[in-house]
Computed example of a mutant assay.
Amino acid sequence: MRRKMNGADYAIHAVLLLLAFMMILPFYNVVITSFAHPSAVAKQSFYLIPTSFDLSSYQMVLQGSYIGTAYLNSVIVTVAGTIVNMLVTTCGAYALSKKGMPGQRIMMSGIIFTMLFSGGLIPYYLTIKGLHLINTMSVMILPLAVNTFFLIIMINHFRSIPPSLEESAKIDGANDIFILFRIVLPISLPTMAAITLFYAVARWNEWYHAMLFVMEPEMHPLQLYLREMLMDVTKMARDDMSATMIAQLSNTYPDGMKMASVIMTMAPIMLVYPILQKYFAAGATLGAVKE
């Protein structure tokens, strides 16, 4: 039933609108700053009202010799990495969700242990080197094959599925692989979509492993490529520059390139998110609470 709005309702709506405005404002500033001329930004203490339209920041970013290769590398890492993530997480969670599995408690203790403790960077580097993953694309995929938090969520979700579904399939002669891919996964689409989105975002933003283990510039992902470009531009802006350099950078500035880089890296994920949005709200909490 509808009821009239009282003072508390107006106060709650006002607070929510204020919070929404505080969240939207930084993104709005990033967008308009990426398309602004440096002189227009300098005239305002906080660039809020766009007074110019300039594409020099995007032109400066796109002029890089490896920008196309870096984009392709990020796409390959995202697609291949997400497939590996979902395959390992799904199969591991399904196996660990079965009660009475030999060594299940020991394996779960080991999984939780990795969430609390790490071996350190030097042992990690020696492990990667021992696996011959140095300077390969696989180093951005295989060491990150599973996220323990998402694995636990999937385990709890699979445990919430009624055992009678699997028992009836086994009576008809189905094996575990058939049950997983033909029965369990189709009814787990919300959870699968939400975790797939989280994995895809993490793989798209991957740069740390490339910085540590990949020396060839043509194998760097987009995020690492843009990071190195911004560091070079910032260094040039701070150091003494020749007249030629000043003329080349007269229509751009480091902050504008940073904003343009943010937009370029966000765009693919922003295009994918609406496709999975209908599953995201339901899948974000499924498996999070064990009854």
Rank of each mutant, 00 (worst) to 15 (best):
Q223A: 14
L62F: 14
P38W: 05
G103D: 12
P163L: 04
P254I: 08
I112T: 12
Y10I: 05
S74D: 09
L185V: 14
N29C: 08
P50Q: 12
R238M: 13
Y279M: 09
I263W: 07
T89N: 13
A80S: 07
F198M: 15
I49D: 05
F21T: 11
E291G: 15
S160M: 06
L151P: 05
G130K: 06
P274N: 04
L230T: 02
M241G: 03
V201K: 04
P163V: 09
K290D: 03
K4H: 05
G283K: 11
T148S: 14
I263H: 08
A14I: 08
M1Y: 10
G119A: 14
E166W: 02
I195C: 00
Q248F: 01
A193L: 12
V184A: 12
L116C: 10
P163I: 06
G119I: 00
K99R: 14
N135M: 07
S74K: 01
V84L: 15
V139N: 02
L25W: 09
L222H: 03
A174I: 04
R159P: 03
L249K: 05
I112S: 09
K99C: 00
T127H: 00
L19M: 14
Y253T: 07
S118M: 05
M241A: 08
A281Q: 15
F149M: 14
K43V: 11
R182G: 13
